[in-house]
Each structure stands twice: as C-alpha cells, then as structure tokens.
C-alpha cells in the first residue's frame, strides 16, 4: 500500500487524497457545466466566470499596483503621507467597486420597478463619503505631524 502511494506520488506529484479532492471538484464543476449548457445564455455565464478572473488578475490588480507605484514616487519616501493617501483611496475604491451599480445608475428601470425610486442619490453620496474619508485621513496626518514636530522641538 505504502509502496503504491509512493509510486503515485512519484508519477502524479502528490498523494492519493490530493487526486481524489481535485478530481471531485473538477467533476462537480463539469457536471454543473453540462446542466447549464442547455441554457440559451450559457455562453454569457462562462464569459462572466472567466471574465471575472481576468478582470481581477489582469486588470484590477495591475491598475491598483500601478496607481500605488505612482503614489510612492510622488511622496518620495514619506511613508506616513503615503499611507494617509492609500487608506482613503482604497476605501473610496472599495465603495465604488461594491456599490457601482447604483453609483453608475446601471439598471434604472429595474431599480424603479422594484423600489419605486430612482438611482440618482448614490453618486453624490459616494463622492461625499469619499471626501469624508480623505478629509478624516488628512486631519489624522496633520495631527501626527504636529505631534512629531512638538516631540522634535522638545528633544531639541
């Protein structure tokens, strides 16, 4: 038995449990795919499934990494300032990502039919929330600077 497991490990690259688990996950996904394949919109579903991975790994991540790189160059080593910009920027971006259907007014008619209300307020609210995040962060940064400078003058 142990010898067989060792042979499997050598040829397959992992133990028998690994093979069972990944096979089960793939078979389940395949079974689901076959069930959905009859739907007229199956192609769109697949597109969104793969598109979500591409949108995150090859669009969202490179974009936020690049923005961060630009920010780092701009602040030139002032790490506290960098983080006081990063945190509200991330907060604002996160809110946009999650609530963009309302902010961008995607689905005005379905929203109206469901709730009896339009999607107008969300953009302004998001802008105000973002402004508040940046403002709070800026105040925090100023406070830190004052504390740091008073400490410096004490020790001087």
């Amino acid at each position: 038995m142990a010898e067989r497991a060792a042979r499997l490990r050598a040829r397959y690259g992992a133990g028998p449990w690994h093979l069972v688990l990944v096979t089960a996950a793939i078979v389940l996904a395949g079974w689901v795919a076959l069930r959905v394949a009859d739907e007229a919109t199956a192609g769109r579903m697949l597109l969104w499934f793969l598109g979500a991975v591409i949108a995150h790994d090859l669009v969202l991540f490179p974009v936020y990494a690049a923005v961060d790189r630009v920010l780092r160059t701009l602040v030139r080593g002032r790490v506290t300032l960098l983080n006081h910009l990063r945190v509200p920027a991330l907060g604002s971006a996160l809110l946009f990502l999650v609530y963009s259907p309302g902010i961008l007014r995607l689905g005005e008619t379905t929203h109206l039919a469901a709730t009896g209300q339009d999607q107008r307020p969300y953009l302004v609210r998001w802008l105000l929330l973002s402004a508040a995040l940046f403002l709070i962060s800026a105040l925090g940064w100023l406070l830190r600077r004052r504390q740091a400078s008073s400490k410096r003058s004490e020790s001087a």
């Binding site: 996950a25 769109r44 969104w48 499934f49 991975v53 790994d57 995607l106 689905g107």
Partner: peptide
C-alpha cells in the same frame, strides 16, 4: 474554479441586490 467561482458569485450577487441585470442571464 475557486477564484472564478468566488468572483462570479460576488459580481452576480452585488448586481442582483442593486437591481442591475447587466449580465443578461438568469
């Protein structure tokens, strides 16, 4: 399947609770 699955679930869920059916499937 894991990453596609979680992102797909998040995207469809978020769009649904905000009544935005841009994906064009059920």
């Amino acid at each position: 399947l894991l990453v596609g699955g979680i992102l797909f679930q998040i995207a469809t869920g978020l769009l649904n609770i905000q009544y935005s059916y841009v994906f064009g499937f059920d």
